[in-house]
């Protein structure tokens, strides 16, 4: 787990920083020659592993584990791609045009063009530019990620009140954090929340892209990734 970058008195935010998973690394199959299919295979393998990590992480989001199993499943099935996209976007903030899918697996525009991911690359860059302009920090990133999980707009929620309470809890945490760290900008919480529609739009585009890859059937995809994609169909 990463150590907090700055001290914050908000316990939810500091807990989220503490439980943030460590860096993710690609483990490409050395027996495969370098090719666009190999790139996509590695990408799908990273996504599957990131999904496993994300499900483990969700259990540590304050208030998530007290929800019913049905509601935990509903939130994750709705929000998993937003959570994965936000991770890639945050990792890519220091670079100009490349997507940092894993620490040792970057995708540039040309690779995205060759693998059919050019449109996805473009929409991800729009989101990256937006967060770069906002100077999104780690505390805000981890809190927004938890908010994406709680705010998934799933239609399969059993206990709506409990999910609304989780949303309020995280909203308060973000407001607290901004009061403490950005007192000069009263609108910063709102600005961050106003990035969530583009995050959802980008995640939906990513789901469409991987559903297409699945339909084409050329790339091996792990069972968890397939199961989560199917939940989106």
């Amino acid at each position: 787990h990463s150590l907090p970058g700055k001290k914050t008195t908000n316990k939810v935010v500091s807990h989220l920083v503490l439980v943030e998973p460590g860096e993710i690394f690609a483990s490409p199959d050395p027996s495969l020659p370098d090719s666009d299919l190999h790139t996509l295979t590695t990408l799908c393998e990273i996504i599957n592993r990131d999904l496993l990590i994300t499900i483990g992480w969700a259990k540590h989001v304050p208030g998530f584990s007290v929800l019913s199993l049905v509601d935990q499943m509903a939130l994750l099935q709705s929000a998993w791609m937003e959570i994965l996209v936000l991770g890639i976007v945050y990792r890519s903030l220091p670079l100009s045009e490349e997507l940092v899918v894993a620490e040792n697996f970057l995708l540039d525009r040309e690779q995205c063009r060759n693998t059919g991911l050019l449109h996805l690359h473009a929409v991800l860059l729009q989101l990256i530019r937006k967060y770069r302009k906002t100077k999104l920090d780690k505390e805000e990133f981890v809190t927004l990620k938890a908010m994406a999980l709680a705010n998934s707009d799933s239609t399969n929620i059993e206990n709506v009140e409990a999910v609304l309470s989780l949303q309020d809890h995280l909203h308060e945490a973000l407001q607290d954090y901004e009061k403490e760290h950005h007192p000069e900008d009263n609108h910063r919480t709102g600005k961050l929340l106003m990035t969530l529609p583009l995050l959802r739009q980008t995640a939906n585009e990513a789901v469409r892209t991987f559903c297409q890859i699945r339909l084409e059937g050329k790339i091996p995809m792990h069972k968890l990734f397939l199961e989560m994609l199917e939940a989106k169909m």
Partner: peptide
Amino acid sequence: TERHKILHRLLQEGSPSDI
């Protein structure tokens, strides 16, 4: 839950490191 058995199992039982 039958259609989503891996997610169900991961949430109910193990940590991801068990998989």
